Simulated scan of single mutants.
Amino acid sequence: MSDGVRLPERELRSFAADILTSAGLTGPAVDLVAESLVDADVHGVASHGLIRLPIYVERLRRGMVDPRAEPTVEVSGARASVDGRNAMGALVATTAVDAACALADEFGVATSSARRSNHCGTMAFYARRAASRGYLAVAMSNAPVTMAYHGGRTRAVGTNPLAVALPRPDGPPVVLDIASSAVARGKIIVADSKGEEIPPGWGIDPAGRPTTVAAQALEGAMLPFAGPKGSGLALMIDLLCGVFAGAASGPELGDMYLNWDRPQNVGHCFLVARFDGALRREGGRLEDFLAWVGRLPPAEGFDAVLLPGEPEQRAARAARRDGVPLAGPTWAELGDLAAELGVRVPLVPA
C-alpha cells in the first residue's frame, strides 16, 4: 500500500476509542463503535470503516447524537422493541440483536426492532455477532434517500442493506451482506474523483435520465440492483425498519452528512433463530455442500467460486496477519482529528 498504512487491529480499536472518548462519548458505546468501524476495515469494507469516524465525531460535537443515551428494551412475547434514544447506532443495533438472541433462547425464533438510532456500520457485523454464537440471523437497516425506486426518476429510498448469517459447526459463518443498490455509492464517488465514466445502470441524472457521468449520478440518484427486485427489497426494508419499527422512513430519515437540524432516527430490524439442533442434524451435509460449491469450475477471469462473505474472510485473515489497511487520505484525516482532540496517534510499523 504505497499510499496507505497498515496497523494492528487492537491498536486501531484503541485509537478509535480514544478519539470517541475525547469527543464526549461515554459508556459501552465507545468500544462498540470502535469495534464496528475497525471490523469493517478488517473485512475489507473500507467504505464503512474508520473513514466514517470523523463524521461520527462531528455529529457528536454538534449535538446530533446523544453521547450518554442508554437504549431501552420492551419485550412482548418473542419480540423486542428498542428505543435507541438517539444513541450511537452501534450501541442501538447491538442492543437490539442481543435482545433477539436472548428471546430466541426462550422461543426458538425471535425478532427485534429499533427506532431513534443512527448510522450503525455494516449489517454483517451484527448478523455475524449472532451467528458466531450459533444463531441464524437476518439483519436490516434503512438509510437516507439516495436511490430511486424502479420506474421513478427522483431519490425516494435508501440503499437499504440486508445481511444474513448462517452458523457452521466448524469455521466462520456464511455471511451475505448486500445493499439494495446496483453498486455502492462510494464506487461512483471514486469514479467521479478519477474523472472516469460509470457503467450504464448505476445511476440517473437530476432529470431522471440514465447517465454514465459519475458527477451527474451523484447529483441525481442511484439505481436499485436488478430493477424491481432491488427496488422491492429496499421498500420492504424501509417498511420494516422505518414504518413498523417507529423510526423515520423515506425522506423523513436524516442524512448523516447533510442534515444538521435533527437526529437521523434510523431504524433496524433483526430476526434470530436458534440453530443448534439443525447444525447437529445437518452440519455434515452443510459442510459437504459448501465444499462442493468451492470445487465448482470457475468462469473465465475468476480464480475460484467463492461463498458469500468469503472475500471478506480472506481480507480479515490478511489484515490480522499483516495489519489492517487504511488508505493514505483516511489516515491523514484521522491524524488531523487526533491532533485536534489531543489523542496520541499510533506509530506506523516500518
Rank of each mutant, 00 (worst) to 15 (best):
R10A: 15
R10S: 11
L12Q: 00
L12H: 01
L12N: 00
R13P: 04
I19F: 11
L20M: 12
L20I: 14
V30I: 12
L32A: 08
L32F: 03
E35F: 11
E35P: 14
A40D: 01
D41S: 01
G44I: 03
A46Y: 01
A46S: 07
S47F: 00
L50Y: 04
I51T: 06
P54E: 04
Y56L: 10
R59D: 12
R59M: 15
M64L: 15
V73W: 01
V73L: 01
A78T: 04
R79H: 15
A80K: 02
D83E: 11
D83A: 05
R85T: 14
N86P: 13
N86H: 13
A87Y: 06
G89C: 14
L91N: 11
L91Y: 08
V92N: 03
A93H: 06
T95Q: 02
T95L: 04
V97A: 11
A99P: 00
A99F: 01
L103I: 06
V109C: 09
R116F: 06
S117P: 15
C120I: 07
A124H: 06
F125H: 14
F125W: 13
Y126F: 00
A127P: 02
A127M: 01
R128T: 13
R129L: 02
R129V: 04
R133V: 05
V138S: 05
S141W: 10
S141G: 14
N142T: 12
V145D: 11
V145Q: 13
T146C: 09
M147Y: 05
M147S: 06
H150A: 11
G152K: 02
G152P: 05
A156T: 12
G158D: 09
G158P: 08
P161Q: 09
P161L: 13
L162Y: 13
V164W: 10
L166C: 09
P167R: 09
P169A: 08
G171H: 09
G171N: 07
P172D: 14
V174R: 10
I178V: 11
A179S: 01
A179F: 07
A184Y: 01
K187W: 04
K187M: 01
I188C: 01
G195V: 06
E197R: 15
I198H: 14
G201V: 10
P206E: 04
P206D: 02
R209K: 09
A214S: 02
A215C: 09
L223P: 03
L223I: 05
A226T: 00
G232D: 10
L235V: 15
M236K: 13
M236A: 15
I237T: 14
D238V: 07
L239M: 14
L240Q: 10
L258R: 15
R262H: 15
L271Y: 13
A278G: 07
L279C: 08
E282V: 07
L286I: 12
F289G: 13
L290W: 07
L290S: 10
A291H: 08
G294K: 12
P297G: 00
P298E: 00
F302A: 03
L306A: 12
L307V: 07
G309S: 08
R314W: 12
R317N: 14
D322A: 07
T330L: 02
E333W: 03
L337Q: 09
A338E: 08
E340L: 07
L341P: 08
G342A: 06
V348G: 06
V348P: 06
